[in-house]
């Protein structure tokens, strides 16, 4: 299990191999030959897997080519009356208004007092400790004592976390169930963006789960929205915003959340 980003760290400290560029170029140049060889010579299950992967790739490629073609079309876009009033100098511009709309909505919503503490999923199913934790029974000592727990649900673990010595570690958060990003949807705009998770703010089931960063349905997480360019009233770029998880991550293998406005 890797501890921290040691490869990045090494690269930062010592740089890459001197011939890295050349190797990367050669590898890329051989890519086509490699693929051709695989396609012709793989047999059995590996051939099947390879074909499936290649199929998906080709679909993606075709989609992209189609998009480029659409962009190059010289024809006039349909004359449509824009919906939100904008000044003359913003007419005819394809504006990335989505991010901006977020912040204005948040503000208008806050004005209504009743809405201040409401969240999209008001009630969540309680999760008992029996369900969340599995007792570790492996090892000679552990069989006797049994105070070590494995978290069985997805978790968020901060980037600066280092495991404690095994002797003192009470909760294990498995690597396979750790998540760093969430697909955050804006409720009215229906735009979904993948954003990095900053922290877990509240797991409604249990304060201990908040501490452990357990991601279950209804958990409030803080996401990094700096890419969206949301601006606060004082003219600074907003960084973190809260979102609530809307799916059962342990079933889906991804985290879907809705931004709280």
């Amino acid at each position: 299990m890797p501890q921290n980003e040691y490869i990045e760290r090494h690269r930062k400290l010592h740089g890459r191999r001197l011939d890295h560029e050349e190797r990367a170029r050669k590898k890329a140049a051989r890519e086509g030959h490699k693929q051709s060889e695989n396609a012709q010579n793989l047999r059995g299950l590996r051939a099947k897997l390879y074909a499936k992967q290649r199929h998906a790739q080709k679909i993606q490629m075709r989609k992209q080519i189609k998009q480029h073609e659409e962009r190059n079309v010289k024809g006039k876009p349909a004359e449509k009356e824009p919906s939100d009033p904008v000044p003359a100098y913003l007419l005819d511009r394809a504006n990335p208004t989505s991010a901006k709309a977020l912040s204005s909505q948040i503000k208008s919503k806050r004005a209504e007092k009743a809405a201040r503490f409401s969240v999209p999923i008001p009630k969540v199913r309680g999760i008992s400790e029996e369900e969340l934790f599995k007792v570790v029974k492996t090892g000679k000592k552990m069989q006797k004592k049994g105070w070590k727990r494995v978290v069985t649900k997805p978790t968020f673990v901060g980037p600066d976390f280092t495991r404690r010595p095994v002797k003192y570690e009470r909760f294990i958060r498995p690597m396979g169930l750790r998540y760093k990003k969430a697909n955050v949807t804006h409720p009215t705009l229906n735009v979904t963006v993948q954003l990095p998770i900053l922290s877990v703010k509240k797991n409604p089931s249990n304060p201990l789960y908040t501490q452990l960063g357990v991601l279950t349905k209804g958990t409030i997480i803080e996401v990094n929205v700096s890419d969206l360019g949301i601006v606060t009233a004082s003219g600074k770029i907003a960084w973190g915003r809260y979102a609530q998880i809307t799916n059962n991550p342990e079933n889906d293998g991804c985290i879907n959340a809705v931004l709280l406005v």
Binding site: V86, P87, L90, K100, S103, S104, K107, A233, S234, G235
Partner: peptide, 12 residues
């Protein structure tokens, strides 16, 4: 002088 106060984009 910095003049915050608008709640949204300033158009004019």
């Amino acid at each position: 002088m910095d003049l915050p106060g608008h709640e949204d984009e300033v158009y004019a």
